[in-house]
Simulated scan of single mutants.
Amino acid sequence: MREVTPKKIREMKGREKITMITAYDYPSALLADKAGIDIVFVGDSLGMVVYGDENTLNVTMEQMVFHTRAVAKAVKRALVLADMPFSSYEVSIEEGVRNAVRLIQAGADAVKIEGGADYEKLVKKLVRMGIPVMGHTGLTPQRYLRLGGYRIMGETEEEIEEILRDAKALERAGAFAVVLEFTLADVAKLVTEEVSIPTIGIGSGPWVDGQVLVWHDVLGIYENSPPFAKRYANLNGVILKALQDYNREVKTGEFPSGEHYWEYQDKEEFNRKARNVLERINL
Rank of each mutant, 00 (worst) to 15 (best):
E3S: 07
I9E: 00
E11P: 11
M12V: 10
E16G: 07
K17H: 13
I21S: 05
Y24H: 15
S28L: 11
A32P: 08
D33V: 10
A35C: 13
D38A: 02
L46C: 12
V50I: 14
Y51A: 09
Y51V: 00
E54L: 13
N55G: 06
T60Y: 04
M64Q: 10
T68F: 10
T68V: 05
K73P: 01
K76I: 03
D83W: 10
P85N: 08
S88L: 00
V91D: 15
L103N: 10
A106H: 04
D109W: 12
G115F: 11
A117C: 15
D118V: 15
K121A: 15
V123H: 02
V123Q: 04
K124E: 14
H136S: 06
L145F: 13
G154P: 03
E159K: 06
L164S: 03
A169C: 01
R172W: 05
A175D: 03
A177Q: 13
A177T: 11
A177D: 09
V179M: 15
T183C: 14
L184E: 13
V187M: 02
V191D: 02
V195N: 07
G201A: 07
V208K: 06
D209V: 03
V214G: 07
L219N: 07
P227V: 02
P227E: 06
F228E: 01
V238N: 09
K241A: 05
Y246W: 05
E254N: 03
F255N: 00
E263G: 00
N271G: 01
K273Q: 11
V277S: 11
